[in-house]
């Protein structure tokens, strides 16, 4: 089925819950109401014409500081060989959506990852813990307005250049030593690289 057919089918079944369908996008995407998230996913998986048995990817994203969060899944069907993407926007404060872990087991860890990095709470998830960051980490790192915590268990978290050390080193009279030592070990012809040089 073409993405348009799939979207029409979902639209027919759910009506207003389908907010918009972008057929021009590189991956045609159906935008749905988060209230109907689980039902639409269940329909996509179980309907005899759709049979999306493979959840390829589940990712969260952020529209920007102060705006909404989003969640998008890319689905593929092994029997029917067609694909579609479904996405939903969630409020920034207290984002909640129903878990689709019971439909595709692979969503388990993907949802934990989105919870870890964006703070989206998946209702009905059996084991919603942080997965990549430590359990007692503060904040949700991939949000655009995230600010890293200063200390984690007494360890300084943000990386800071130690400019004082740099400057004292610059004033050290022996600093030329390294350059000279290095120069002496250079190959005689010096520049040893191929001629072609595109700009990356």
């Amino acid at each position: 089925m073409t993405p348009q057919d799939i979207a029409d089918k979902v639209q027919k079944q759910f009506g207003d819950a389908v907010l918009e369908f972008d057929a021009e996008a590189l991956d045609p995407v159906i935008k749905v109401n988060p209230e109907a998230w689980f039902d639409i996913c269940e329909f996509l998986k179980t309907d005899a014409d759709l049979e999306f048995d493979n959840l390829v990817c589940l990712s969260g994203f952020d529209y920007g500081a102060g705006k909404e969060l989003g969640i998008i899944i890319h689905l593929y069907s092994f029997p029917k060989r067609h694909s579609i993407a479904v996405k939903a926007d969630l409020p920034r404060e207290n984002p909640r959506i129903r878990s689709i872990e019971s439909l595709w087991r692979t969503a388990d860890w993907h949802e934990r990852e989105v919870f870890d990095l964006y703070g989206v709470v998946f209702d009905g998830h059996p084991d919603l813990r942080r997965i990549l960051c430590p359990d007692d980490w503060e904040g949700y790192p991939l949000r655009k307005d995230y600010e890293v915590q200063e200390f984690y268990h007494g360890i300084r978290v943000p990386y800071k250049e130690d400019w004082e050390e740099f400057d004292t080193f610059l004033k050290n009279p022996r600093r030329g030593h390294f350059v000279f030592q290095f120069e002496r070990t250079l190959p005689a012809n010096g520049n040893a690289k191929p001629k072609e040089k595109p700009s990356p």
Binding site: L26, D27, V29, V56, C57, I72, H74, A85
Partner: peptide, 17 residues
Amino acid sequence: KEAYFRSEAPRGEIGFY
């Protein structure tokens, strides 16, 4: 604009969204 592309790496599909 958004794109999701998956390709076959030795350990499976590597996808970039």
